[in-house]
Computed example of a mutant assay.
Amino acid sequence: MVDSKPLSELYSVKTIFAILVLYCVFSTKLYSDESKLNVKQIKVLKESFSYLESLEPKRIKIDKSTYNRLSQFESIFKFSFSGKKLSRWIQSRINKYSYGSTGDYIAMYQDGEVLLGRAFFSLNRLDRVLVLLHEARHADGKNYGHVICPENFQFLNPRDWKIHPAGKKGCDSTSDGGYGITAAFLFELGAYGYLNQTEAAHRYNSEISRVIRD
């Protein structure tokens, strides 16, 4: 028939179409609802995710036995270190972002929405990622809520010295809570050379200091 196509050509067209559909689905970056943020704030948020997604595993810069002994990333997240996968992990837990007063905190999570305070937008890109990662953990249930830090808690908040954790709900009682997972992430950055080992160790120790064990 004049208007018909050979069967092989028809299958070829269908195959190309299917590939294009799959490409569109899997190559599209998924971001949560940002309608409550202004243009500059949205730009900062997306730059944070772009930075995170650029962090992919390469050759380990530390002793392999040390890495195997101390790395907690895969046991927590159930996938090997990958900025792209971690970005999707965060975005699967945070549905909306808004801006407003957060009191003594840089950000706050409630019912799938993260309220970002003014201080968030003054942070460097790594610290912004740490905040987002931390807040996303709260989506996993009450087991990952904070406990009150001891009154004699003397560690500084590395992202804002004006925030004093002592006597406030700013610590964790579980090793894989908001601070435990940011510590695990920082360890990977040091192990893969994205941070020098001195900075990685200081940052790691700061996060893990918030895990209070009985």
Rank of each mutant, 00 (worst) to 15 (best):
K142M: 03
S27M: 03
I62P: 11
P150I: 10
G83T: 15
Y67T: 04
R118H: 09
F79G: 12
S50M: 02
G117K: 04
E34R: 02
S65C: 07
Y194V: 04
F81A: 14
H146W: 04
Q41V: 04
Q72L: 15
N196V: 07
F155I: 12
D172Y: 08
D127E: 13
I148M: 15
N152F: 09
Y97E: 11
H202C: 01
I212K: 03
Y11K: 00
S4N: 06
F81W: 14
Q72A: 13
S8F: 00
K14M: 07
L37Q: 07
C171S: 10
F26N: 01
S122H: 11
I212D: 12
L132R: 11
Y67L: 14
F73N: 06
S27I: 00
V147K: 04
S35V: 04
I148G: 07
E188H: 06
M108N: 12
E53H: 03
L52V: 00
W89M: 14
S48L: 02
L45Y: 02
Y11V: 00
K5D: 00
I19D: 03
S82T: 14
L20N: 08
Q91H: 15
V21S: 02
E47A: 08
S175T: 07
I94Q: 10
G117N: 06
V2K: 05
I60K: 13
T15L: 04
E47M: 09
D104M: 05
Y67G: 06
V44H: 07
E151V: 04
I16C: 00
Q41R: 08
Q91I: 12
W89Q: 13
S27Q: 06
G167T: 07
Q110G: 09
Y194L: 13
K5A: 04
F49D: 07
A201V: 09
I148T: 15
R128H: 05
R59V: 14
L132C: 11
M1V: 01
G167I: 03
S209V: 02
A139L: 08
I76G: 04
I76C: 11
V39A: 00
E9H: 00
Y179S: 13
G170D: 06
E113L: 03
E47G: 06
T198D: 15
F185I: 08
E199Y: 05
L86A: 14
M108Q: 14
Y105H: 12
H164I: 12
I163H: 05
D111T: 11
C24G: 03
I19S: 05
S98E: 08
G83R: 15
K96A: 12
T174P: 01
D104P: 00
K43R: 08
H164E: 09
K5V: 15
F121I: 07
I42E: 15
K36Y: 11
L130D: 13
I42M: 10
R59N: 13
